[in-house]
Design a binder for these strands. Structure first.
Lengths: 296, 296
DNA sequence: GGTATTTGATAGGCATATCCTATCGAAAGG
DNA sequence: CCTTTCGATAGGATATGCCTATCAAATACC
């Protein structure tokens, strides 16, 4: 039963029998049969059947919610038993917005030393992808914005408030003092792609300052942005935490962006499932002790 | 997997391999094998093994919590799909304290008419048994005291406040006006057994009024108490709601018990599992609309 | 103290479920 | 019109689940 629910979740996620089967490490006929059996056992159609996958029925949608719960709890059970057996161990799968990637090392620093058997897997994703992956049990926790878009049924631990700086090559005229958002009208900017929440935040502040931007360079990667700043004449806007790591040398500099002195809360997000698995509980505890926003 | 978890729950409840197997409709070797496989899959011992069942290990205890969650959710999934298929239907298993048995008909009255395919099964239990059966998924909801003993992780809907009357044969000298608890010192009382919370409540009020009682007749059934009142010379103490149904004829009468005018809240109790299954949600809704204690 | 009973584990055998490979038919794409 | 994609179906090997029968240890009883 639980295996079939896993396959059902995979099917809903991949929207494709073949890919879902591959993701589950079974062949396509096996997954097809599993879905059919699930439908027989529950007595309802879960998937619209044509010659191809055509989405979930309303019952399928409701069943998916339960399936996620059941499968998630079953994994929690297994994980907790493994921890009972061999101490904190296992994989902790994180997805992180690009501008918070440097914060991961703060989280893992003490954690990795205290729990050497816990392995981290970190991937860079958009905030929307992070929420969807949390729902689909593809990751155990995420690092994303907490104060902008609706999050759903999750536990959150605020970590810090993002503040923004303009990053440009050393000697750039704007680097001499705080820069207003409205000063950026004629600056050549490279920015994250618009599917990134960070970009939408920046767009909003720029537009509120009456500035229209159409960056020639967009990327999903902060590294790409910074290397364009270093190697060419672009400037970029980054959260302080994301920029810091690049500011060690003399190549580039940064100044705070003011009017407004914008700030957006970033933190850890995890599925809310009482009780938490030991590994996740430990990570949340670590995040709380690290938080700059205890009272948030 | 889920089947094995069901067997594990049964074993924890019955504390006996053979009985647990019978309860699950399998033979004892099947259940033994299932538990062993569960232990193998989880990699931990769940049950202390001697020549007989000797309780759960700490890991077993934790696993039991998850197992209840998973099995309960799986049942919810199945029930919800059945409701999607054929409308509100299925069994609703209730356990009720004896003094609230007459209230069940208030709950079922409108409900049964609106949902003819829902069958009720009602059993009379102590409040402690009700809570334990809720935990073990043996019942779907209970009717018990809400304001005395700790309830655990449950949803409650208060229904009414129990108030107490003295019930005695017509013509009994005490029936002429309100009776104080302290007036009962020399009255021959028959009462519920001390494992019933109602009896403990009554004991407490009597003892606070300085009255010691050692009833010659004790029973788990209100019917037994009332028939002793009718046929012999005993009196008894009952909540109004439990007494009403017997007061139609002229054989017996009742008077309020005062000083104190004691009151204890009785209501519906159900496992807290979001979202509720449709049948349970409908019952809770019915209970809320019926409640005399909306603001409680 | 010796016998009977209770309790859970083990062994062997059968039925069923599961998962694979190979193939098919319908729909979509070019 | 041909090719590709996608999911369903068929057949066979393997694994799992559950049963009956039996055993060994512990306990209860005379």
């Amino acid at each position: 039963m639980i295996d079939k629910l896993e396959m059902f979740i995979a099917l809903a996620r991949e929207e494709h029998f073949g890919r879902a089967a591959a993701a589950q490490g079974v062949t396509q006929p096996t997954l097809s049969a599993a879905i059919k059996q699930l439908e027989d056992q529950l007595g309802v159609m879960l998937v619209w059947r044509g010659s191809r996958y055509q989405g979930l029925t309303p019952e399928g949608q409701r069943a998916l919610d339960w399936a996620r719960r059941i499968v998630g709890d079953a994994r929690s059970l297994r994980q907790e038993m493994r921890v009972a057996r061999e101490g904190l161990s296992g994989d902790l799968r994180l997805a992180v917005i690009p501008t918070a990637l440097t914060v991961v090392s703060d989280l893992t620093a003490g954690f990795g030393a205290a729990h050497p058997n816990v392995r981290f897997s970190v991937q860079s994703k958009t905030s929307a992808e992070i929420l969807s992956m949390l729902e689909n049990l593809e990751i155990d926790a995420g690092l994303t914005y907490l104060d902008n878009e609706p999050l759903g049924r999750v536990t959150t631990v605020p970590l810090y408030a993002e503040r923004y700086v303009l990053v440009a090559k050393s000697g750039h005229p704007l680097l001499n003092g705080p820069v207003k958002w409205s000063d950026l009208a004629d600056v050549q900017l490279c920015l994250l792609t618009p599917d990134m929440q960070n970009r939408r935040i920046i767009n909003q502040h720029l537009s509120e300052a009456g500035v229209e931007v159409a960056p020639q360079i967009e990327s999903t990667s902060v590294v790409v942005l910074v290397s364009h700043v270093v190697r060419s004449n672009w400037a970029t806007i980054l959260p302080v935490r994301a920029a810091e790591i690049f500011l060690k040398g003399d190549d580039i500099g940064s100044v705070p962006l003011i009017e407004p002195d914008a700030s957006h809360v970033v933190g850890l997000v995890a599925p809310h499932r009482e009780p938490f698995t030991p590994v996740l509980a430990a990570l949340l505890e670590r995040a709380r002790s690290l938080s700059e926003l205890k009272g948030y």
